[in-house]
Design a binder for these strands. Structure first.
Lengths: 198, 198, 198, 198
DNA sequence: GATGAATGAGGTTTCATTCAT
DNA sequence: TATGAATGAAACCTCATTCAT
């Protein structure tokens, strides 16, 4: 993009620092100073690359959801069967305790903002759309294979699949127990299978 | 309780005002002034009844989750069959677009805090425990009736049920579309039924 | 005095509570609430008996210095010789670690105010005048007895005597060591004797 | 010192402004705003250079007592005789009405705090230790010269010397009369001479 | 490009004072 | 008389933002 003459790399560095700081401290405790500290740059630099603190956070949500969508899509594309694709999707959504904790803490911050502020809601909507595309791909292939119920419509089923994934990961996050991660992942997979199966 | 000499009624009034203000403005925009404004009292009054802003919010979460648990339990108790109890539970969790939006905006704020701050996590855990009690009640009755799968254990199933409810309501909240509330409620009910059924 | 229709006894109770609270907490930490707490009455009562917090403190200084002057005068009057009177004065000014600490903490608060606010300065001046009266009594008797230097004038000598007393007690207060109280008392007595002696 | 990356000069400027403001207004009336006003900077700057208002005041006491100790020591060092050193010490401690008023108003504020708060007491103790060093230097030299009493021990005599200085300056401060400054200075010198002489 | 000193709006909190009961 | 709920001014402090260097 021509939009940014400034070093795209340093922007990424700041976004990642913001991600870490936000996950660690939470929305109301994160400051430009803490973001700058995490990035190893001065406070002024953040303002040089981003118009405002808000702009950092908006772009962070965009960047995060984009990365996750890409990763999930890639994982699903690699598989040929509906069952394989679904498993790959869940695997991708449950990469492990550390990554899930870091991301979902931040994601909950963003969801609470998205419930009130359109710009966040729109970014999240694009993320949901990508999730729906994956779910639809899995569902329709499964229906062709005959393992998923014919009567299921992608429009109503896709949101439920993401609901179960997010719901399970939130439940797990609240347990604050890394060992239960595998249990919730398994429960999530099983639940989605039951929802889809004939 | 003797704990509060001060008018318990006014405490509730302030808590409710905080609830409204928080739902409207979000955690980082809500101030003691806005809470006081919503309650129709002066700023000092909030501090007269609560030690700090934090104390207001902690007690708000406690009060909100307590009220919801009570309502859900009462609704489930009134029904005699597993199917009736489950429907009552879902009805209770999906009271309508306005109530769900108001509550889930606030609840997302609290979940994001609960992911980092123990005191919020503990309150939420008590809420989850109550939800699990309801789910267990529904599940075991359904197993006795023969409509739910014998092999399901309450310990792993209960969290999934709440995960689907919360997940669906978050998905709906993000659509910002009141008309879809009924659709998500229906999807939620169907999904849980599929997860539980033999 | 007719000035106070209100129970003089309760006023004293509040003044004494203010004295304790002030000694314990210091000027900037003492509040009407802490004074009321120490007095075992409600906050409103303090305002009922005194126009303002400032009024409590002004009257407290008046009351304290008045009591001390009376005590010192009485002690000195009881003695017949210059040496006896001086010893009685010092004894009276050094009643012990606990009393000296309580009083001098408060007195330092008042001195710092008296250096800027006329009303406190005037009250303190009356205290100094009483001290000077005592010193003059001791000095002139001693001169008659021939043990104190003839050339000493009460006007310049009296302030020095109080200076040594206050100075020694402040020095002792800063050591925060009860055991040194007797040492400083002895040093104070010796110093004054040297200043006065022929 | 590496401790302060930030301009040491501006710190000094703020400390001096705090000194003036504190002397003028007193401890309970001085605010960060008044300090900032006296320094000709904005309120935020004070917090940029100091962690808190308390930190400003602690450092102010440290700075003030340090400066005075240095000045007094230097003055005493310049003199060769015990009498000369003592006169230099007194001269240094009585620089004049304006300076003494400004300093002793502030110092009384600090003494009242030092009587309750350890950090202030410790700083004051270091000041007292320096004063004792000076007194000891004067005393031992005077004993060698044969003009001061052999039996005087520095440990008990030094505090009395400072007690007389502080006591006299407090007495003078309370008169609120510049013309009496010289009188009290003379009285102070005479008193100390009598205390020390053979 | 990069820094960090400076600003000041706005937040939480404290507390003297008022006043209905 | 006595209480304590209520008020609101003013304190300390934080921090996004600006800007000279």
């Amino acid at each position: 993009m021509v939009r940014y003459k400034k070093s795209e790399e340093k922007r990424k560095q700041i976004l990642f620092a913001a991600f870490q700081a936000l996950s660690e401290l939470g929305y109301d405790s994160v400051t430009l100073q803490t973001i700058a500290d995490h990035a190893g740059v001065s406070k002024g630099v953040v303002h040089y690359y981003f118009d405002s603190k808000e702009a950092v956070l908006v772009e962070l949500l965009e960047w995060l959801t984009g990365k996750i969508s890409a990763k999930e899509q890639a994982a699903v594309r690699e598989q040929q069967t509906a069952a394989g694709k679904l498993a790959a999707y869940i695997d991708s959504a449950f990469p492990g305790p550390a990554k899930n904790r870091t991301f979902y803490r931040v994601y909950l911050d963003f969801l609470s903002r998205a419930s009130r502020i359109p710009v966040y809601r729109e970014i999240n909507q694009r993320f949901y759309d990508n999730c729906a595309r994956i779910s639809t791909e899995v569902l329709t292939l499964g229906q062709q294979e005959g393992i998923f119920a014919e009567e299921l419509s992608p429009d109503t089923t896709a949101p439920v699949i993401r609901a179960i994934i997010d719901g399970c990961l939130i439940q797990w996050l609240m347990t604050d127990n890394d060992k239960l991660h595998a249990v919730f992942k398994e429960s999530c997979y099983t639940a989605i299978m039951k929802v889809l199966s004939v």
